[in-house]
Computed example of a mutant assay.
Amino acid sequence: MTSPIKIDIWSDIACPWCYIGKRHLEAGIASLGADAPDVEIEYHSYELSPDTPLDFEGSTVEYLSAKKGMPVEQVEQMMQHVTDVAAKAGLEYHFEHVAHTKTLKGHELLHLAKAHGKQLEMKERLMKAYFTDGGRVNRIDELVGWAEELGIDAAEARDALESGRYADDVQADIAQARAYGIQGVPFFVIDGKYGVSGAQPAEVFAQALTQVAGERDGEAA
């Protein structure tokens, strides 16, 4: 039996295009229906903005305006555009509630969730928490609560986060991205050989998976 097509994704919890890209990939796979190949998806850590403070007190508009040196009006237009694109992908963004923070602790939780076979569910939960619910993805109490929602023992989650058990794994993912030359996310590596950069439309992912599946069939013939 042919092994599933592996899709490795470098992504940050605080990246609006990463959440959109996640939905586009899911839609691309779903669009293939019965012809969809088996896939195995694994998320890898990436820190989009390492200089983000742990707890920025202020709005998304204020943060981006100061960081990028852009007028407030331009930032608001940019955010509205992203919100509209997200809505078309079925996502509800509330930038007015977003709590800017470093995401490293959230990435550590994703590695713990992977160890429990629940990484995909945790990725979805953390991105919804960040973009829709205004959650603090750096605060251990909140992270433990989301772990509990997915059936992960609270004491284990707290110990893993407080001890930094998965901190080295997070840094290894970031180092691998650097080695690959990845400078922006989302970045998808399909079957270990094809790179797809950005939140491409669903049909791009469908086409890439169809191509890989076809190549595998050719090799097996």
Rank of each mutant, 00 (worst) to 15 (best):
residue 21 G to M: 00
residue 71 P to W: 01
residue 101 T to G: 07
residue 1 M to H: 14
residue 57 E to D: 15
residue 151 G to A: 04
residue 1 M to R: 12
residue 4 P to I: 13
residue 53 P to F: 05
residue 67 K to N: 12
residue 134 G to P: 01
residue 216 R to H: 07
residue 181 G to S: 08
residue 215 E to H: 04
residue 165 R to P: 02
residue 7 I to D: 04
residue 79 M to G: 13
residue 119 Q to V: 01
residue 133 D to K: 11
residue 140 I to W: 01
residue 190 I to S: 03
residue 115 A to G: 11
residue 129 A to H: 02
residue 151 G to M: 03
residue 96 E to N: 11
residue 32 L to S: 03
residue 168 D to N: 12
residue 155 A to E: 15
residue 79 M to C: 06
residue 82 V to I: 15
residue 87 A to F: 03
residue 93 Y to V: 06
residue 211 Q to I: 15
residue 86 A to V: 07
residue 52 T to E: 02
residue 194 Y to F: 11
residue 203 E to T: 07
residue 43 Y to K: 03
residue 148 E to T: 15
residue 136 R to A: 12
residue 186 P to D: 14
residue 75 V to M: 05
residue 176 Q to N: 12
residue 88 K to Y: 07
residue 208 A to R: 00
residue 136 R to V: 03
residue 58 G to S: 08
residue 60 T to D: 06
residue 53 P to Q: 02
residue 76 E to N: 11
residue 103 T to R: 01
residue 11 S to K: 09
residue 41 I to F: 01
residue 33 G to L: 00
residue 61 V to H: 12
residue 214 G to I: 09
residue 42 E to P: 00
residue 99 A to F: 05
residue 201 P to Q: 08
residue 178 R to Y: 11
residue 17 W to V: 08
residue 48 L to D: 12
residue 107 H to K: 09
residue 182 I to C: 10
residue 30 A to H: 00
residue 59 S to D: 09
residue 23 R to T: 13
residue 115 A to H: 10
residue 48 L to S: 10
residue 77 Q to F: 03
residue 186 P to Y: 10
residue 184 G to I: 06
residue 108 E to W: 03
residue 204 V to W: 01
residue 154 A to S: 12
residue 128 K to P: 00
residue 130 Y to G: 00
residue 212 V to P: 00
residue 112 L to S: 08
residue 32 L to V: 05
residue 45 S to C: 02
residue 24 H to S: 12
residue 150 L to P: 05
residue 208 A to K: 11
residue 131 F to I: 08
residue 175 A to K: 13
residue 50 P to E: 13
residue 199 A to D: 11
residue 128 K to L: 13
residue 27 A to H: 12
residue 176 Q to R: 15
residue 4 P to Y: 09
residue 98 V to F: 11
residue 52 T to M: 07
residue 40 E to F: 04
residue 189 V to M: 06
residue 156 E to F: 04
residue 39 V to N: 08
residue 71 P to A: 13
residue 62 E to V: 05
residue 168 D to R: 07
residue 185 V to S: 05
residue 130 Y to D: 05
residue 190 I to P: 06
residue 30 A to F: 00
residue 151 G to N: 05
residue 95 F to C: 09
residue 39 V to I: 14
residue 78 M to A: 13
residue 101 T to R: 00
residue 7 I to H: 02
residue 220 A to H: 08
residue 17 W to G: 09
residue 21 G to F: 02
residue 126 L to V: 04
residue 140 I to C: 08
residue 215 E to Y: 01
residue 71 P to L: 02
residue 2 T to D: 14
residue 2 T to E: 12
residue 46 Y to G: 02
residue 44 H to Q: 04
residue 180 Y to S: 09
residue 76 E to C: 04
residue 13 I to F: 03
residue 106 G to S: 01
residue 151 G to E: 10
residue 24 H to E: 15
residue 114 K to T: 10
residue 162 E to W: 02
residue 83 T to S: 15
residue 43 Y to Q: 04
residue 38 D to Y: 02
residue 183 Q to P: 03
residue 203 E to N: 10
residue 54 L to G: 11
residue 160 A to H: 02
residue 110 L to F: 06
residue 202 A to D: 09
residue 187 F to P: 07
residue 116 H to R: 15
residue 100 H to N: 09
residue 211 Q to K: 13
residue 132 T to P: 03
residue 55 D to F: 08
residue 50 P to Q: 14
residue 31 S to P: 02
residue 180 Y to K: 10
residue 4 P to D: 14
residue 28 G to L: 06
residue 165 R to S: 07
residue 103 T to D: 05
residue 50 P to V: 10
residue 82 V to M: 15
residue 78 M to P: 02
residue 88 K to F: 05
residue 45 S to D: 01
residue 164 G to M: 09
residue 34 A to Y: 08
